[in-house]
Amino acid sequence: MLEATNELGNVALQAGGTLTDANAAAALAVGLAALGAGYAERGIGSAAVGAMAEDDDLFVNGLILTVLPETIVILALVVVFIV
């Protein structure tokens, strides 16, 4: 997958430097932030489900903690509005 991304980058650069376009860069920023949030939620989510399986009362806490990394995507979204 990494090679494919590299290829894509090369093609994009040859095609006239798409990434210098502010809108494209902002889109990339949001996408990467979402990827990071997804990775963080993977660990928290599985831990939350584990905790819930032992004790149902932890549902609300688990849910809140699981979506907490989502804030990073919202912060990244700010970038879209200021470019």
Partner: peptide, 14 residues
């Protein structure tokens, strides 16, 4: 491996 899940359950049991 999925340590997050197992650790969460084990901590509750502890």
């Amino acid at each position: 491996s999925n340590p997050e899940y197992v650790v969460a359950r084990v901590r509750a049991r502890r």
